[in-house]
Design a protein around this nucleic acid. Structure first.
Lengths: 136, 136
DNA sequence: CAGTATCCCCTTCGATACTG
DNA sequence: CAGTATCGAAGGGGATACTG
């Protein structure tokens, strides 16, 4: 097999960057909240720590680094005392933002229904030892 | 603190179903691909196994069960030989579908840029001991 | 303030083998 | 065909302590 040099670079990026991996980074458990929280302008580390409910310092750092590496966030360090670091979305991430908020709004609209669906599923299925026979 | 009985049930579902968890299920690494693949009508197990690139049988099963439990997929068993099982989106999931495809299209448009951003990041940062060799 | 560094648990996930 | 069962490796993720 031989291909042109332009094809090769295309292929390299495809190999290095399978769709499922991009989606995993961009739509991961924490990434969504972080990107949404960072959308309204420059945001500082502790602001994010507060606004992303339930995230640990460690996970926040890890996710910020990964988003920065993927070119979705810029990290600006102001060499002051105390230090000040600002994160903001890149244009690419800004374009993503509307899909993310759509997702979040959908989740908010349907969380009740989902909780109910789970309750139903759990009450109908797998009554391991007790009364109530399994579904279907 | 006292609240009305309707508020209580609202709160229970909120507790049982935090936003970040919903997002994790719905926008998880595999969920996106599965939901998109299942969108074009009833889909059988092995169809999904083929169309969702890189997923293992185990992970597919686990994710299908979770999506079914959350009320996003219906699972229909036809008691034939060989067995035939069809999955399809619920109305709720169908509403989600457009956001998901938006996300996927975004990922496709930018995967090249992202791969490039990573390469840049890795070549500039953390040249630990050798010539720019770093994390994955 | 904005992180790093460790320790350690516990879930995720792939590989493999078996079944109605 | 459409799963389930089991195992073992990998890494996600919290808790805690320390630093420029």
């Amino acid at each position: 097999m031989s291909r042109s040099h332009t094809d090769v670079s295309q292929e390299v990026t495809a190999q290095a960057c399978p769709l499922v991996e991009v989606l995993d980074h961009v739509a991961g458990k924490w990434s969504i909240s972080i990107l949404v929280a960072a959308a309204h302008g420059p945001v500082r580390f502790t602001e994010l720590e507060r606004s992303v409910e339930g995230i640990s310092r460690r996970m926040l750092t890890l996710n910020l680094r990964r988003l920065e590496r993927d070119g979705l966030l810029t990290r600006t360090v102001h060499p002051t005392v105390p230090p000040k670091v600002e994160y903001r979305l890149t244009p690419m991430a800004r374009e993503l933002h509307s899909y993310l908020t759509g997702l979040v709004e959908w989740a908010e609209r349907h969380r009740g229904t989902i909780a109910q669906a789970r309750a139903d599923y759990d009450s109908t299925a797998t009554p391991t030892t007790e009364t109530g026979r399994a579904h279907q």
